[in-house]
Structures are given as C-alpha cells and as structure tokens.
Amino acid sequence: MDLHTVRTYCLEKKGAIEDFPFGGDIHVFKICGKMFALLSNRDGILHISLKCEPEVCEILREQYPAIKPGYHLNKRHWNTIEADGSIPTEEIFGMIDRSYQLVFKGLKKAERERITNSLRIK
C-alpha cells in the first residue's frame, strides 16, 4: 500500500478535501473542516492515522501489531497504522470508511444534507 493509493481512496469520499495544516509532508483529509485521516511517511514507512470508536481501537491494536495509539492525536479515539504490508489492504480501506463515517455522522444535519444533496446534482 502506498501514499498515492490511500490518498486517492480518501479523496473519493463524499465532500473530502486534502489539506496541509501541519506542513507539506502530512496529508490531512477533512470533511467540513473535520479530520478523518492523516497520511505521512516516517522512516520510509507510510503511516495512516484514523478515527475510531475507543472499544474498536483497542481490538484493532490487539489484533495487529502495526496499529498503535494515534501519533500526536487523542489516543483513545485515533489509531495510527504502519502500512508495512502486515494488514490486508481491504482491512485498511474498511478502517478509512469507518473513520469517515464517524466524522460524517458527527457533522451538523445541515452539513450532512449539503454534502449529500451536492452529490445528487452532479
């Protein structure tokens, strides 16, 4: 799994944008100004930080050694994945979907409707 693949997948999400508030080497993906994914290369390894329910965060960390508490994030609600090939791609895509859905559900109703309605018009 590489940065381009994950970046493309994140940008395919409804209303998703890419931003660089922490510098050019950290790709931040947001919906209505709220982060759902961060990508960075550290020591030649792609790191993907994703939001998650606290109980699911713990299960994933126990299941996969490449998943750690969120790097420079709320460790209760975020995981950081070292994309070293030990986690199946589809599993990572599922974690991205979960993160996006958590953030989407937390948006104001008007924001959710705006995103949903803008996609129907296209």
Rank of each mutant, 00 (worst) to 15 (best):
D2L: 14
L3M: 13
T5Y: 11
V6S: 11
R7C: 15
T8W: 14
C10G: 05
C10M: 04
K14A: 13
K14G: 01
G15T: 01
A16R: 12
E18G: 05
D19E: 15
D19S: 14
F20R: 12
P21M: 12
F22L: 12
D25S: 11
I26T: 10
V28M: 14
K30R: 15
I31K: 04
G33M: 04
A37F: 06
L39N: 14
N41Y: 11
R42W: 12
R42Q: 14
D43Q: 14
I45Y: 12
H47Y: 12
K51H: 07
C52K: 11
P54C: 01
E55F: 12
E55I: 05
E58D: 05
E58K: 03
I59R: 09
I59D: 10
R61D: 01
E62C: 13
Y64M: 06
A66N: 06
Y71M: 01
N74R: 06
R76M: 06
H77E: 08
N79D: 01
E82P: 11
A83M: 05
D84Q: 09
G85H: 03
G85V: 00
E90Q: 11
I92N: 06
F93C: 00
M95F: 03
I96Y: 08
R98W: 01
Y100D: 09
L102R: 01
G106L: 13
L107R: 01
K108P: 09
K108G: 03
E111T: 10
R112K: 00
R112C: 00
E113D: 04
E113C: 08
T116G: 06
S118R: 13
L119Q: 02
L119I: 14
R120C: 06
I121S: 15
